[in-house]
Design a protein around this nucleic acid. Structure first.
Lengths: 223, 223
DNA sequence: CGCTCGATTGAGCCGCGTCAAAGTGCGTGG
DNA sequence: CCACGCACTTTGACGCGGCTCAATCGAGCG
């Protein structure tokens, strides 16, 4: 893991105080850090010292299968919390997709808070439950959907997380989408092209998607 | 959900007191219940009133995709705890695979215990973490492995959970295995047959697997 | 003995991966 | 400002792995 720059003040990355809301009335002080494009936040096997909250940008969590192929397990966007998905050691790695600002809180602080405040512990459990739910949804997509349906599900999922419900700015590349959906970049690209042909979406640029017919997309997902 | 038979004493199913260890020195009283083959333990959308521990037999958790295809998310064996994977409502259903004895504990009791005892809350979080880890492993298998590798991974996973490291009694049908691995029964069957031809396993009967060459199995899984 | 349900085996097909070649956008340097 | 290079995306041709459909087999049970 790169130097977190918390003990060493005055590093090149600006450090702004930030906070993570854990429970009602319980807010933990965090340290803000900047990560560059494709920079690793933490790696598989490392000690899980911090929990992270996305302030700006986006983060992907990765695991590699034994033959070296990459599987993206989840994407995290501003407001999302990640890094608590494991015990003492990380079982996956996390990378900034583009330039990203994260807020860090020591796990030890969180554990202490959870011990003293039942509502904090409850909030932690709810966070874990949401993560588990997401992982199971993902398994369902990977197990039971075809290529077009996977891409449709992905777009709908993003659309629900974004303010402008029908304009999606993709922070990630086709390769990232492919590795998340367990497809190839070619298949993802073809799915986008097909949807554009069907007037379901518009693609003003490869990273900008306009949902023109949400119903058609939902129909596609269900297929 | 079927009548839990807890308020109504003297039902047809025998009720034996049992317990669930939540933390060091913290054990919750549970009620033992018997479930028949393919009987539903709880259903998607129902209120999540209980947490369950497998005493004997095996349980599968299920979700259906929008087109009606079944995905098995996990199998639970004696000692395993399930039913805490969601908030107030179940987002999946659970069924007994064969005859099964389960120990039930009210969630309200667990929540109370977690509020009063920090180590209990910690134990809950560890349980959730393990579930999350399992779900992510599953996603990796579904996303990145071929048919033979999936079946190999499945057998190795079972072998590690069973006392006799190389003799596996499968409580579930080929259909269950197929729906867990997101394959068809035919493909699962062919994978078994292939492994038998390669002398990697022996199949004295369709539900009984003998691992003859664990290394070959591990090699297959990694493929 | 014959029925039924689950498992196995075979033949053929189709969706997605693989390989290869353009096409596009953007930053860099002349 | 334009030329170039690089990374990313798109598009096409083709092959293969796993799904579909169908028949057979085997075990448990009335």
């Amino acid at each position: 893991m790169r130097d977190l720059g918390i003990e060493t003040s005055g590093g090149p990355t600006r450090q702004v105080s930030d906070s993570i809301a854990l429970g009602p009335g319980l807010v933990l002080q965090g340290t803000r850090m900047h990560f560059r494009r494709n920079e690793e936040v933490f790696g598989e096997g490392e000690a899980a010292t911090y929990v992270y909250r996305v302030v700006s940008g986006a983060v992907r969590t990765i695991r590699f299968s034994s033959d070296g192929r990459r599987q993206i397990l989840n994407f995290y966007f501003p407001g999302d919390i990640f890094g608590l998905e494991c015990g003492s050691k990380h079982t996956l790695s996390a990378e900034a997709i583009g330039e990203a600002d994260l807020s860090l809180v020591r796990r030890s602080l969180i554990d202490t808070a959870a011990k003293q405040d039942a509502s904090a512990a409850q909030a932690l459990i709810v966070l874990m439950q949401r993560q588990l739910q997401t992982a199971q949804d993902h398994a369902l997509v990977l197990g039971r959907k075809g290529a077009g349906e996977r891409v449709a599900a992905f777009l709908l999922q993003l659309a629900d997380r974004v303010t402008a419900q029908c304009e999606i700015d993709l922070p990630m590349s086709r390769a990232d989408i492919a590795d998340y959906l367990a497809l190839t970049i070619e298949t993802v690209s073809r799915a986008f092209t097909q949807m554009e042909r069907d007037r379901t979406i518009a693609l003003p640029s490869s990273r900008h998607v306009v949902v023109r017919d949400r119903c058609a997309l939902e129909l596609l997902e269900a297929a």
